[in-house]
């Protein structure tokens, strides 16, 4: 076992961990917290939000702590200036893009990194209309941070159902069914796994949604399946 231990320093403190340990886990064991957004213990890690980046001496660019593993002799800095700038700017850019009002973990991070939520005036946010097309859940992609978790649990990470994938690319990317068909016409089996992993309230059980928009619990319980399954989109509702 000891043969497989690697030695490194984390924020100046010498440490060791079994080879193959991610920087994130190694730091956790030393009581050093590194923020994460896209990472989830039960999903394939894609290292795409980049909030967990740390500075490794000698590396040209910052490395994602959630997937990069500790190596012998590594000198890791989790709070260098470059790291702090990257985290702050990523959060500021997220605020300029999506509705984070139901993402308390991100809000806490914003406070910790001195984030100006209004940093980007005149920025074009992503505000697609809410999709309410089935009795079980609503999809409000104005809150979607493209963490990919829902796509992954619907596919190889859990369900092998492949109901959802991506529409567009770059800034215009949105989670979508095949040719944007309503959920009931897709391969979705309404297992609810995607709702369970969504970190921002973009996917939400219908009942919770109906409560939030002002229905009383009795009213909701009395609704028929098709009444709950309406196709109202946010734009139509406000019209």
């Amino acid at each position: 076992m000891t043969a497989n231990l690697v030695q490194f320093t984390l924020d100046g403190t010498p440490a060791q961990a079994p080879a193959g340990t991610t920087i994130l886990k190694a730091a956790q064991q030393l009581g050093i917290a590194i923020p994460t957004i896209c990472y989830h213990d039960y999903c394939t890690a894609n290292a795409l939000c980049r909030i967990c980046v740390v500075e490794v001496k000698g590396a040209r660019v910052l490395v994602p702590a959630c997937t990069a593993t500790v190596q012998d002799g590594m000198e890791i800095h989790t709070q260098s200036e470059r790291v702090q700038r990257a985290r702050r700017v990523i959060l500021e850019m997220l605020y300029s893009t999506v509705d984070l009002s139901e993402a308390p973990e991100i809000e806490a991070m914003a406070a910790a990194y001195d984030v100006d939520c209004q940093r980007f005036p005149q920025a074009e946010p992503r505000r697609p209309p809410l999709i309410d097309d089935n009795p079980m859940y609503v999809r409000d992609y104005a809150k979607c941070i493209l963490c990919w978790r829902c796509v992954q649990v619907c596919a190889e990470d859990a369900q092998y159902t492949y109901a959802i994938n991506f529409k567009g690319r770059g800034y215009e990317t949105q989670i979508s069914t095949f040719y944007e068909v309503p959920m009931p016409e897709s391969t979705c089996v309404f297992c609810g796994q995607c709702i369970g992993v969504c970190p921002t309230g973009a996917l939400k059980f219908k009942r919770q949604y109906l409560l939030e928009i002002g229905y009383a619990i009795e009213e909701i319980l009395q609704m028929t399946r098709s009444e709950r399954g309406g196709r109202r989109r946010r734009a139509e509702r406000s019209a």
Partner: peptide
């Protein structure tokens, strides 16, 4: 770059768009 970003990672997905908006000004 805003048109060609694949959209996978946040810095480039959002950064290329914000950069474009500022460069427009």
């Amino acid at each position: 770059f805003a048109e060609e970003s694949c959209g996978k990672c946040y810095p480039c997905q959002i950064g290329t768009q914000r950069q474009l908006e500022i460069m427009e000004r």
